[in-house]
Structure formats: structure tokens, C-alpha cells
């Protein structure tokens, strides 16, 4: 009897996680695309040096972070995949949206502070250990940071908009 209840709970969790997780993921990707489009005029590059001739008025460190975790259903799939090895597709969109989200937060902060580009962007990934001492991770943190710049002449190329 207990076994049936346990199985029932697991199945319920799997189904809930599948539907909510998939729905939330789709909604997040839509939001990411919209915000990325809105920030097209604020480039973030991994190059350290400025394009020659750029006149910098101000510089400041900016960062954005996000902690994400897989839903129960995808963790279950990933666990199965770990038995035979190979590519775990469930993790790829999760890390993709986390990195894009962290980058967006960094760029949005730069924009809010009046900067118009971010150079020397770095992305770091770290795993948060769980308090229960198990092997399971509590989540993965993505940190994006870079140097935001206010450049002379920025924005002057769009006098009509």
C-alpha cells in the first residue's frame, strides 16, 4: 500500500513538474527574446580593448546573476540519462536561459545607470551545494560581469528616433 502511495506521489510530482516546468520555460524564453531585442543598442562584448577612437566618459563594473534549478521531471530524465551516458538535453536550455538572463540583468543595470556598452564580459558558473549533504545540487549560479562604459557621441547617431 505504501509503495503505491509513494509511486502515486512520484507520478504526481513528475506530471506537475512536466507541465509547470515546460510552461515556465517557454514563458521565460519569450521574455528573454523580448528583452534582448529591447537592448540591441547596448552591446556587450567580451573584448577587453575599445574600438580605436572611442572616447570614454565614465566606466563602472556591472554584474548580473541568477540561480536556477531543473524541474523534477527533467531531473528524473537526467538521472536516467546518467545511467547510459551521453548528451543531457534537459540541462542545455536551462543553462542557456540562465546565461542569457544573467547577461540581460547586467545589461539592464548598465542601461539604468546611463551606460551605453559593456566590455570585457565574463561569465562564471558555479554549483551550489545542498544543505542536506547529498549529491544533489541546490542550484547552479551564473554570474555575468563586465565594465560598463559611457562613451562620447553615443546616441547621437539616432537623432530622428
Amino acid at each position: 500500500m505504501d509503495a503505491f502511495i509513494n509511486l502515486g506521489i512520484t507520478l504526481l510530482l513528475l506530471v506537475t513538474a512536466y507541465f509547470t516546468g515546460t510552461h515556465l520555460e517557454r514563458r521565460h524564453f519569450d521574455a528573454i527574446r523580448r528583452r534582448e531585442e529591447a537592448l540591441l543598442r547596448l552591446p556587450a562584448i567580451t573584448i577587453r580593448r575599445l574600438p580605436p577612437g572611442t572616447q570614454v566618459m565614465a566606466a563602472s563594473l556591472v554584474s548580473g546573476n541568477v540561480v536556477v534549478s531543473l524541474d523534477y521531471f527533467k531531473r528524473f530524465l537526467a538521472g536516467l540519462r546518467a545511467i547510459v551516458g551521453g548528451r543531457i538535453k534537459a540541462y542545455e536550455p536551462l543553462l542557456d536561459r540562465a546565461r542569457r538572463e544573467a547577461m540581460l540583468r547586467m545589461r539592464e543595470r548598465a542601461q539604468a545607470a546611463g551606460y551605453d556598452m559593456v566590455i570585457n564580459v565574463r561569465l562564471e558558473t558555479s554549483r551550489l551545494a545542498n544543505t542536506d549533504g547529498g549529491r544533489r545540487t541546490a542550484g547552479v549560479e551564473i554570474l555575468a560581469f563586465g565594465t560598463a562604459l559611457k562613451t562620447a557621441g553615443a546616441g547621437q547617431d539616432t537623432p530622428h528616433s
Binding site: 520555460e25 534549478s69 523534477y72 527533467k74 540562465a98 551550489l128 549560479e141
Partner: peptide, 26 residues
């Protein structure tokens, strides 16, 4: 935060409590 995060762990996505915690610490 840990408790909320473990609930959030079921549906996945961002664990806002941890995001803020790490941001404040940094």
C-alpha cells in the same frame, strides 16, 4: 529560503531567494 527553494526545485527555473542571497553577499 532553503525551504522555498526546495519547493521551487519541483517546477524548476529561477531560485530567487538564492539569487538575492548571492547578489547581496557579492
Amino acid at each position: 529560503r532553503d525551504f522555498m527553494a526546495s519547493l521551487k526545485n519541483i517546477v524548476g527555473g529561477e531560485l530567487k531567494g538564492y539569487t538575492e542571497l548571492l547578489q547581496e553577499a557579492r
